[in-house]
């Protein structure tokens, strides 16, 4: 028995079915607690007023927007090295979630930006790199949709994801070079002096955990759908031959 056995499609379907409700339950609990705590039981910021509370959606979404890409990169590498079908399908399943998270991050950012900076959008490095990330997601998803043979699609999107990652990081540095921004530093970091104070920090962590759990649940669910779709495909191909 090795760890990789759980990546067999049948095994995967087996162990995810009972796990899924718990993941979604925990995600719902965390999000309910975190959001209610954040929205109603934290003080208004002395400068930003109540607008600061959008942080409980903005920061977790932005975290997951980049986190999803890293998860896709890891899944792509596993597919290339070990050729586990579930890994490739999980990467495929994650992409639209990452796209949505990026979009939520951009929209909540715009809503926050209007009262704070007086504008919905500015070509600030952070904002711009999220926009570029959005384009990467679009290209990745379009690539999956365009190729008929599922294994070739998995191969090609994996290469795209790996090369894309390098260019995404390059772009991140390039936009810093191109424009110094107005966006504040990271809201959460272990050593920074200026990160948000404890009253805001605790519900934020709960919200982030909630988003991660929600992401895991959605990826598992979507991967299960992809596996079923592949199974239908395989059965149809077999029926045609019979």
């Amino acid at each position: 028995m090795s760890f990789w056995e759980y990546a067999n499609p049948k095994k995967f379907m087996g162990w995810t079915a009972p796990v899924l409700p718990y993941v979604f339950g925990a995600a719902a609990l965390c999000l309910t607690v975190g959001l209610i705590w954040g929205f109603f039981f934290t003080p208004d910021d002395f400068r930003q007023g109540s607008t600061v509370k959008i942080i409980y959606l903005h920061v977790p979404a932005a975290t997951m927007a980049t986190g999803t890409w890293f998860m896709m990169l890891a899944a792509s590498l596993i597919w290339v090295v070990r050729r586990h079908h579930v890994s490739a399908l999980a990467a495929r399943a994650a992409a639209p979630i990452g796209l949505t998270m990026t979009l939520i991050g951009l929209l909540t950012g715009a809503i926050w930006g209007q009262p704070m900076w007086g504008t919905y959008w500015a070509w600030d490095p952070r904002l711009t790199s999220f926009l570029i990330l959005f384009l990467f997601y679009l290209g990745y998803i379009a690539m999956w949709e365009a190729i008929e043979d599922p294994d070739t699609a998995a191969d090609l999107t994996s290469v795209l994801c790996m090369v894309g990652s390098v260019f995404a990081i390059l772009s991140r540095y390039a936009v810093n070079f191109w424009n110094q921004g107005l966006h504040q530093g990271a809201s959460l970091s272990l050593d920074a002096e200026e990160h948000v104070s404890d009253v805001f920090w605790q519900p934020l962590v709960i919200c982030i955990v909630g988003f991660v759990l929600l992401f895991v649940g959605l990826v598992l669910m979507r991967t299960r759908t992809e596996i079923r779709a592949r199974r239908i495909r395989a059965l149809e191909a077999r029926a045609r031959r019979a």
Partner: peptide, 13 residues
Amino acid sequence: DLNIGGGADEAFL
């Protein structure tokens, strides 16, 4: 043979 293994979709059957 129809039931021979080894196809790309084998893991899903």
